[in-house]
């Protein structure tokens, strides 16, 4: 394992080393110390390296991730794993707003709580939150799965298109065009698989499923009351 002390090495240099290390078989595993809330740590990775970050990070950590496995042993600022394409990003602490925003693929695990707008505009990413989420999580979600083991904040799934939302606790309120749906055997099986991949032990039978009522895809005046 290679160690980079961010107190001595800037984020740009760290990210340059992480990207160029992908072809070096001896540099597949990294430890980053002293992140101290810096932004854009391990952003833009495209190869399957493993990175552990020892402390709290700032904005957009592991943004645009492809293939890499990034573990943050602390809390995250805004937009962790925003636009993630593939790979795994795991947050041991809490994540601030817009976690996994616009993510296309891969898995984001937040073992603690997530702030507002978790999974905003998600486009295929799977997000598993061990605790609760803030308001407007899953806003305009288009594809993928958002699993919230605790409670969800107000306006869950507002203006959602086609993602699936599973909540183990209860949502404070549902957003426009978000409705509760049946939890079928197929959905319970998918949920069990997501929880297993996230490494979170919780009874899948506790969960309820939410998704789109599909009234807001296009404006239709007879659906005006759904807004």
């Amino acid at each position: 394992m290679r160690t980079v002390d961010l107190a001595a090495t800037g984020v740009r240099e760290l990210n340059r080393r992480l990207r160029s290390a992908a072809d070096d078989p001896s540099a597949q595993s990294w430890l980053v110390t002293n992140p101290k809330g810096a932004h854009a740590i391990a952003a833009g990775l495209t190869r399957p390296v493993r990175i552990q970050i020892d402390g709290h990070v700032g904005y957009y950590c592991a943004g645009m991730n492809q293939a890499a496995a990034v573990t943050i042993d602390g809390h995250c600022g805004t937009g962790v794993a925003e636009n993630i394409m593939s790979g795994l990003v795991r947050v041991r602490g809490n994540a601030s707003q817009s976690a996994g925003a616009s993510g296309h693929g891969g898995l984001l695990v937040i073992e603690g709580n997530a702030g507002p707008r978790c999974g905003i505009s998600m486009k295929g990413v799977d997000i598993v939150v061990g605790g609760k989420t803030g308001h407007m999580s899953g806003f305009m979600a288009q594809s993928g799965n958002l699993v919230v083991c605790g409670d969800a904040g107000h306006d869950l799934g507002d203006s959602i298109y086609e993602a699936a939302i599973y909540v183990g606790g209860s949502p404070a309120s549902l957003g426009a065009d978000c409705v509760e749906k049946d939890m079928t055997r197929k959905h319970r099986s998918r949920l069990r698989d997501l929880l297993s991949r996230a490494g979170i032990e919780i009874d899948p039978d506790r969960f309820r499923r939410f998704g789109s009522a599909r009234k807001l895809y296009h404006f239709r005046v007879d659906h005006a009351d759904a807004y």
Binding site: K36, G37, H56, G58, H75, G77
Partner: peptide, 8 residues
């Protein structure tokens, strides 16, 4: 506003 302000 951000954690990095508290880090020291």
């Amino acid at each position: 506003s951000e954690f990095r302000s508290l880090a020291e």
